[in-house]
Computed example of a mutant assay.
Amino acid sequence: MRNTTNIFTEIANKINTKIKNGSYSIEQKLPSEYDLAKEFNVSRLTIRKAVDLLIKQNILIKQKGKGTYIMKQTDKFQSGKNGLLSFTESARAYGKTSKATLITFEKTTQLPEEVKENLQVQEEPVFHIKRLRFFDEDPMTIEEIFIKETLLDEATLEENITGSIFKLIEEKSDIAYSHQEIEAVLATDELSEFLAVEKGQPLLLVHTTTYSASGHPILFDKSYYRGDKYTFKNILHRI
């Protein structure tokens, strides 16, 4: 017997598949709850939960008094589409594998002012990690991460240095939200070599500070993303 708490997730995935293959058109309303319940042989409550999940994922949008519509999507990988996820979790959400090549790993107190300000540290040791990240075999981003030493065991970090940093942090601290600033830059010789793009090609430089629920800074991340492969999704709803 299926776990009833997962049925609406399965239905949401099936609806999303029909959106992707064109069975449900972006120019038309989504079928009614009654019709969807009949189509998938589930209750209208299950359909309602599935639709709510797809709205949270910015796949559907509900217009009061008019119905539910499919939002226009992009072919690029969209950071933020499914909330605050690690790079590893984002890859999994797109059906991709992730891997990392280590460029730099050190524990240091010699920090740029930008890092000190965002992590609210002065002389405290901080882990500095620089990695090249891949979706499958495609280089996607060079990330430079600074993490407070108190949040990670050094031996454990070294052992898992190319894996999910979020997963390691969450063994000691909750992760609640991030603030991001995004700017456009051009690929230098070094960046073009790592990311397999031409020198001068536009990249996205993202400065991210990640916080615990209590508002304490956990991690500062300065990453370069391929502009031809990656985008940051922020849906603005008119109220």
Rank of each mutant, 00 (worst) to 15 (best):
I59E: 12
F40S: 03
T108F: 08
S79I: 14
E39I: 00
K199C: 08
I142E: 11
Q201Y: 10
I129K: 11
S214R: 07
L203N: 04
F105W: 10
D75G: 10
E149L: 09
I145A: 04
A100H: 05
G22M: 06
A91H: 02
E89F: 05
Y224G: 01
P217Y: 02
V121M: 08
I145K: 01
A176V: 02
F220P: 01
F194S: 13
L60F: 04
M1D: 07
L45E: 06
D189N: 11
K167M: 12
E106V: 04
I165Q: 01
G83A: 02
V115E: 10
Y225K: 00
S214H: 08
A196G: 09
T101N: 14
Q110E: 14
E144P: 04
N118E: 07
F77V: 12
E149H: 08
E106Q: 11
T88F: 10
N41L: 05
A196V: 14
T46L: 06
G22Q: 05
T156P: 00
K172C: 12
K62A: 14
L30Q: 02
L195K: 03
S23D: 04
K222H: 03
S25H: 08
L195F: 05
L168K: 07
F194K: 15
T97D: 15
R131Q: 12
E123V: 10
I47S: 01
E123R: 09
R226E: 03
N234I: 00
F194Q: 15
F87L: 06
E170L: 03
